[in-house]
Simulated assay, not measured.
Amino acid sequence: MFRMTSSDARLVMFLFIMSFTVLSTQTGPDVHLKTFCSNNALNYTRNSAFENNLKIVLKRLPSITSLTGFNYTFFGEASAEVYGQALCRGDVSSSACRTCVEKASKQIFNDCISRGEAIIWYELCQVHYSFQNMTSLSVYAGKYLDRDSKEKSVSDQVHFLKFSKYLMTNLSNEAAFNPFNMFATGKINFSRSKTIFAHVQYTRDIRPHECLKCLKSAITDLEGCCSSRKGGMVLSRNCNVRFELYQFYNVSKHLSSPTSRGRKWKAGKVACVVFIPITVLAIVIGSCIVFLRHKRRKETDVERSHLALLQELANPRGVTITEEGQFFYDA
């Protein structure tokens, strides 16, 4: 019979605590990133019909969002109508999603009292409400985080930018045409000991080409603020992008898409992006040369056959027919 010693028990307890700690960092209590209360929106008065409708919309968001990862709803009529939207990061569990949206909904109401439009971002989710239909609001307006400027710089900035941009571009193309949760994660080794981890995501109320446009703008802003730093994030109304030198997402908790799990991009692919088109072009050019030479040779042979036939017609030879029916050309 196996007996567990006190040292074995301590080891098991240590491993259990460590595994719980790792899980908590990925799906546990969320962190508030930024709140934006619009100054251009129509303000509402306290205890008005708009405020009551806003409370109803914010209360509706958590339950459905926790099941699907995204929710868009509205309530009210005419000038008191309120539109609400919630999005959870594609790698979090349903319970963590619900907890985040509930927390964000309470905070956005308190932070932006009397504002007719506002959006709040957390580590794992975002909540947005407005007095107007948000499906028609696809104008990009990226938001930086104060912590981006505090990130340390990398040593080889040119090399780092090339690999990070390659990774983010590929993830954007993958997310834009992902029919599930419009979310993609991935990583790439840019040195023997260092790896870039990244994620991109957009809300599900915009079309793929609008998604790509939003993500490209966000990546451009990300390059402007953080191309030489060890981490960065850009937030917007419809899309978010982020990269770090550590794995900040959970590859085993994607909400609804088996295809959006973290992908590892090979460093060699960066070179292939340039090498493959050149190789293909060389093959195409070579094939064209061989085809043209073969065609020219064939045309020459046909011309020769026609010339020989004309010569024979111009100088006909005599033909002798034997009794057995055989033909012989006279010399």
Results as ranks from 00 to 15, higher is better:
residue 41 A to E: 07
residue 184 A to I: 01
residue 263 R to P: 02
residue 133 N to F: 09
residue 146 D to F: 03
residue 176 A to E: 05
residue 187 K to A: 11
residue 8 D to V: 02
residue 5 T to C: 09
residue 120 I to A: 04
residue 78 A to N: 11
residue 70 F to E: 09
residue 136 S to F: 06
residue 135 T to L: 01
residue 231 G to F: 04
residue 180 F to W: 04
residue 250 N to W: 11
residue 269 K to R: 05
residue 72 Y to C: 00
residue 275 F to R: 08
residue 10 R to Y: 01
residue 214 C to K: 09
residue 28 G to S: 02
residue 32 H to Q: 14
residue 327 F to G: 03
residue 312 E to K: 06
residue 166 Y to G: 02
residue 39 N to Y: 02
residue 212 L to F: 07
residue 113 I to C: 00
residue 327 F to H: 12
residue 30 D to N: 06
residue 77 E to V: 06
residue 31 V to A: 08
residue 208 P to Y: 06
residue 243 F to S: 11
residue 280 V to M: 12
residue 257 S to V: 04
residue 82 V to R: 12
residue 277 P to Q: 06
residue 41 A to S: 15
residue 106 K to N: 13
residue 52 N to W: 01
residue 282 A to C: 03
residue 131 F to P: 03
residue 201 Q to C: 00
residue 28 G to E: 07
residue 273 V to D: 05
residue 63 S to D: 11
residue 288 C to V: 09
residue 24 S to E: 04
residue 285 I to E: 01
residue 95 S to W: 14
residue 34 K to H: 15
residue 178 N to P: 01
residue 323 E to N: 07
residue 306 H to V: 07
residue 188 I to K: 03
residue 261 R to P: 01
residue 56 I to G: 00
residue 157 Q to C: 02
residue 205 D to R: 06
residue 257 S to P: 08
residue 195 T to M: 09
residue 144 Y to N: 12
residue 44 Y to S: 06
residue 208 P to D: 05
residue 272 C to R: 12
residue 87 L to D: 14
residue 140 Y to W: 11
residue 328 F to W: 04
residue 177 F to Q: 01
residue 132 Q to F: 03
residue 241 V to M: 13
residue 87 L to M: 15
residue 193 S to F: 14
residue 271 A to W: 13
residue 93 S to E: 06
residue 65 T to I: 10
residue 284 V to A: 07
residue 119 I to T: 13
residue 314 A to P: 00
residue 187 K to I: 00
residue 277 P to M: 10
residue 329 Y to R: 04
residue 57 V to C: 05
residue 103 K to N: 10
residue 202 Y to W: 08
residue 138 S to Y: 11
residue 256 S to A: 10
residue 85 Q to E: 12
residue 325 G to L: 03
residue 164 S to Q: 11
residue 267 A to W: 09
residue 114 S to T: 15
residue 270 V to I: 12
residue 257 S to W: 09
residue 8 D to S: 10
residue 219 I to T: 14
residue 110 N to K: 07
residue 20 F to M: 10
residue 301 D to M: 12
residue 234 V to Q: 10
residue 270 V to R: 05
residue 65 T to W: 02
residue 302 V to A: 15
residue 139 V to E: 05
residue 270 V to S: 05
residue 252 S to G: 06
residue 72 Y to I: 11
residue 285 I to K: 02
residue 328 F to M: 06
residue 304 R to W: 03
residue 214 C to P: 15
residue 193 S to T: 15
residue 164 S to I: 06
residue 199 H to G: 05
residue 28 G to Y: 11
residue 134 M to R: 14
residue 79 S to V: 08
residue 249 Y to C: 10
residue 265 W to G: 00
residue 165 K to D: 07
residue 92 V to W: 09
residue 331 A to C: 08
residue 268 G to K: 09
residue 271 A to S: 10
residue 103 K to W: 04
residue 106 K to E: 12
residue 228 S to D: 15
residue 207 R to M: 07
residue 274 V to Y: 09
residue 11 L to I: 07
residue 42 L to F: 05
residue 54 L to E: 04
residue 1 M to E: 10
residue 116 G to P: 04
residue 96 A to T: 01
residue 22 V to Y: 11
residue 297 R to P: 04
residue 184 A to W: 07
residue 29 P to L: 11
residue 237 R to Q: 10
residue 202 Y to S: 11
residue 256 S to I: 14
residue 94 S to R: 12
residue 43 N to E: 06
residue 6 S to F: 05
residue 84 G to A: 02
residue 140 Y to H: 13
residue 107 Q to R: 04
residue 247 Q to T: 00
residue 226 C to D: 08
